[in-house]
């Protein structure tokens, strides 16, 4: 068990370190002249050589790459990713500023997506009518096929401009949160629903369900008592993918609805080539992804006794 833990934790740490290194190579080493990236392309010609030298000095670009890398890595270990080129503020503070807004949006979307995905799986399993099942099962692949920017614009057009139920832009109050949350929930719900529909169907055909039938249980009783408990768990295995979808979706959702947040800030940082900020965001996202997968790996055996047994058998040295 300890070995399993150490292996998983080691892999998570490796991913974070490698994401840091990858972004360092991409953003600081590959560009022919990283100093150029620090200036607005339109104003590049007006920058004097003295200013360039000064900037290179302050960012450490005149030192050997290895030293730059080690210095940045050392600072990153203490949570310091340098200063944003645009605002001059520290990258960590800039990210922490907009993080709550994205967290609210993403957690709202995640809850809604889970509700919808479970509802789809329940309806698809419990209905006796094939056409209802086919229709409901087609929903998830539809959800992942519609571009987020299109569903966002459709939401705006219908519920904001036509019906006037919700404000179109801004991030004040619960009302302005409704449309972005729905928009972001659609692509997130799709893969979860696909997985749940499959796992509900598998469990519904399994032996213990036959036993329950034989004991005279009703269809809905079986689904709620037997299938639901066993089939919900696999959704955890795509927690990492779900997180990725939430991040990617929030970039577009925040742009469409002009909301503050990590996604929109990242887009702005990439547009202005704010290299330290981009690196900070990528490392933060990779670290969160690795942490989520690590947590899932660690709690999954706790939730699923079958896996716990397999682990104990697999490693005799288990404590």
């Amino acid at each position: 068990m300890l070995r399993y833990l150490a292996l998983k934790a080691g892999r998570a740490l490796f991913v974070v370190w490698a994401a840091f290194t990858l972004t360092f190579v991409l953003l600081f080493v590959l560009p022919a002249n990283p100093v150029d990236l620090l200036f607005d392309p339109a104003e590049l010609n007006t920058v004097t050589p003295e200013v360039r030298a000064q900037v290179a000095e302050s960012y450490g670009f005149n030192k050997p790459v290895v030293l730059q890398y080690l210095a940045r890595l050392g600072h990153a270990l203490t949570g310091d990713f340098g200063n944003s080129v645009q605002s001059g503020r520290s990258v960590t503070a800039t990210i922490l500023d907009v993080l709550p807004s994205t967290l609210v949006l993403a957690s709202g979307a995640l809850v809604l997506a889970l509700l919808v995905a479970f509802a789809i799986a329940l309806v698809a399993t419990s209905t006796r009518r094939p056409w209802v099942r086919n229709l409901v099962e087609a929903l998830p692949s539809g959800a992942v096929s519609v571009p987020v920017f299109l569903s966002g614009i459709l939401m705006l057009q219908i519920f904001s401009f036509q019906l006037g139920w919700f404000p179109a832009f801004g991030d004040r109050g619960v009302k302005s949160l409704v449309l972005p949350v729905i928009t972001l929930a659609i692509p997130v719900a799709g893969p979860i629903a696909q997985l749940l529909v499959r796992s509900f169907a598998t469990e519904f055909r399994s032996g213990y369900v036959t036993t329950s039938w034989a004991k005279g249980a009703t269809r809905s009783g079986i689904i709620v008592r037997d299938v639901f408990r066993n089939a919900g768990l696999p959704a955890l295995t795509i927690a990492g993918i779900t997180f990725g979808n939430l991040i990617a979706g929030s970039v577009i959702t925040e742009t469409v609805f002009a909301r503050q947040g990590i996604g929109r800030m990242t887009q702005a940082a990439i547009n202005t080539l704010d290299v330290p900020l981009v690196q900070g965001v990528v490392v933060l996202v990779a670290a969160s992804f690795a942490l989520i997968n690590l947590i899932v790996d660690l709690i999954y055996p706790l939730l699923d006794p079958r896996l716990r047994a397999a682990l104990a058998v697999g490693s005799p040295r288990a404590a």
């Binding site: 991409l26 560009p31 990617a248 887009q267 990528v282 992804f289």
Partner: peptide, 21 residues
Amino acid sequence: RLVDVFLAIPSLLLAMVVVSV
């Protein structure tokens, strides 16, 4: 392990970084 790293960064974000470079 390299694949793990690429999977840890959402594709849209990774693509945005690559395009910016």
